[in-house]
Design a protein around this nucleic acid. Structure first.
Lengths: 386, 386
DNA sequence: TTGTACGCGTTATCAA
DNA sequence: TTGATAACGCGTACAA
């Protein structure tokens, strides 16, 4: 016999059966509103439900999932929970899953390979029916994923391109974003534009840079080498702030001339802004600056940060929907399933959000543009690329 | 017979037993490194492990937990995942749980009562062994919690005072924080200080206000009524930014004179900062401002935001440790358990973090104080209260 | 050292 | 209309 449990006794179907005087089967039928319960007398149903609720019955998920061979859960692996980028994606996933019978099981990897593997293992042991990888930074490649793929579980990566690990991925169109950023500044009259590229190990860095270069080529804009900096590789996202600060500080020290800055992302912009302010430059009067991401802080910063917005919530809910669709397919059709889509990369259009950190490059412009209040939906223009 | 599953066949102990030629029991003993496995031949162990790994065996968490009557999970209910306040607490919890055998099951309530109830129910069905409620905003009272309490599950609230719902809680000492904020500005020479109080339904608002008043009384500082504003009740945390903006804007319009602002929290500060800037006031030269929380953005804002820091990570890990301790107690001792601590409120000391948004109130002071770079650990002074 | 048997709480099938 | 029974995969006392 098992050691008598010290917890409050768990109420089981058997208890309800005993108290109500009906069999376990009947009780189960009734409480689950199973098809067969049509034939159960209404009075019986009522009685059983009353007993169940009086006893505080709660079905045991473990027993249920053991029997039904379904966990009704979807694993979410988040690389960094303190990054608003991940958090917003998470929010999108949550919302998409909310109306379904699936429960998200969220795991936090803290950007550490070891944690990642360990947590992945736990998710598999819990027999999640789908897997979403939310990545903000380096995810690298993972042999373990190959292992997982064999299990036929629908899997999608969101935020970063994980196709190198043969995972279907969803992310913003970085190149279009870079292009749009350059275009925006160009159209405002800027010709001497500094660019702060992202760290080299991040594929996104090059994509954004390519977009910038593509626009420059098309517009006949030249990007002076001394105005192009690159963030150093780092595992810590907050180092981006310092990176932006250092790069711009050093450009200013060297006497480089520029009237606008394209930063790798919003955090980098904030670093750049501090550097500019310390040098006594006003934004956007003396220098415009544009970021990337549209993290929540961008809107509440002063000046409001003009940026290239990633539709993070949308990315999250889209990823969730992909998984749900695969799940539906797998259940109704044959074994073929979604494996055919392995390795696909899907790009979502970014959105230019104009706030107060960018302004027309003019000699006679007013001291400072009128700053309006609205946080979220202000001055937004869409420019879809590709 | 159950409908043949279309998923890849699950590898069970039976499979390993069959392939390896040993019995299920032996396989189980070996793989779990159970005490009895001492007597199993080393060669056997090796063989079994080899087979298990070759077949890609993964124990089924549901079956295991059904049998052992333990879920090895702790439920975490987060009121708002997009709030860095919650997120940092979550991080602390995660870190504390990381070294244990417990797995956090994170649920997101999106600040909605209905979700909260539904998710709570799911956590109970999953038989979480402990429960942590991470609240940032309104949590209100919950009958359901009473229901949960009966189940004897260790439960703690963190971030807000939930003792009204008879939940042991952990939060920052808001009164000490308010006191420290007022003191800081006073010591810098400020005498005309505007105060932006939090919304009235939030107990924290009054506590911080009490702290401010207490300091004012002790120092003989008078708080002019026209310099005291209050945020309106709102369910949306980002409305705090707008609240701060509006209150300060209107004070300025009315010609109120002040040289410093104590804002309810960091987001409110940011709104206030925008209002001040629009009125052409420089921070901190013309007006100092201090926030509360120390959300990550405070450090990367320009000027860096002086604020009263809540030790969010510490709060999270402390809450986790409480639950773990209760769990340990419950398992070793009698049924008495931790219920004796129901309703306790534990306060953690806040910390004054000095950055660049506050400065001495002087006539002859330099135009702007030297701004240094370091993001995190700069200019921090501790002042513990109570 | 290893194998047998049983039960954890549910659900599906088949009988009554 | 309802009830008995056999799995689901695992862990463990007990027997061999």
């Amino acid at each position: 016999m098992i050691t008598q449990n010290h917890y409050t006794k768990r109420i089981t179907l058997a208890d309800i059966a005993r108290v109500s005087g009906f069999s376990i089967s009947t009780v189960s039928l009734v409480l689950n509103e199973a098809p067969l319960s049509r034939y159960v007398a209404a009075s019986t149903k009522e009685h059983i439900r009353a007993v169940a609720s009086k006893l505080g019955y709660r079905p045991d998920a473990a027993a249920r999932s053991l029997r039904s061979r379904r966990s009704h859960t979807i694993g979410i692996m988040v690389s960094d929970i303190s990054d608003p980028f991940c958090t917003l994606i998470l929010q999108g996933i949550e919302k998409a899953l909310h109306s379904t019978t699936y429960l998200p099981i969220i795991m936090i990897a803290h950007n550490q390979r070891k944690q990642f593997g360990r947590h992945l293992e736990m998710l598999m042991e819990r027999r999640v029916e789908g897997l979403i990888l939310v990545a903000n930074w380096l995810f690298g490649e993972f042999d373990q994923l190959a292992d997982i793929r064999k299990s036929q579980i629908p899997m999608v990566g969101v935020g970063r391109d994980l196709t190198a690990s043969r995972v279907r991925s969803l992310q913003v169109d970085n190149e279009a974003g870079g292009y749009a950023a350059a275009q925006h500044l160009y159209e405002l009259g800027h010709r001497k534009i500094a660019v702060l590229r992202g760290p080299s190990e991040l594929a996104d860095s090059d994509r954004r840079w390519n977009g910038i270069q593509r626009f420059a080529a098309e517009a006949g804009l030249s990007l002076a080498p001394e105005l192009v900096g690159q963030l150093s590789p780092a595992d810590d996202p907050t180092s981006e702030f310092e990176g932006g600060y250092r790069l711009i500080s050093s450009m200013i020290e060297k006497g480089a001339e520029f009237t606008a800055v394209i930063a790798f992302d919003d955090l980098t912009s904030l670093g750049a802004i501090r550097a500019l302010r310390q040098a006594g430059r006003h934004i956007p009067k003396d220098c415009s600056i544009i970021g990337f991401d549209d993290i929540p802080h961008a809107a509440v910063n002063t000046p409001g940060l003009t940026t290239i917005r990633q539709p993070m919530e949308q990315m999250g809910s889209m990823a969730a929907k992909w998984v749900l669709d695969s799940l539906a397919d797998t259940k109704s059709h044959t074994t073929v399933g979604p494996s055919s889509l392995t390795g696909t990369l899907h790009l979502l259009p970014p959105e230019l959000v104009i706030r107060q950190s960018t302004a027309r490059r003019l000699v006679d412009m007013r001291a400072t543009p009128v700053t309006r209040l609205s946080v979220a939906s202000q001055g937004r223009a869409r420019r879809k690329k590709r």
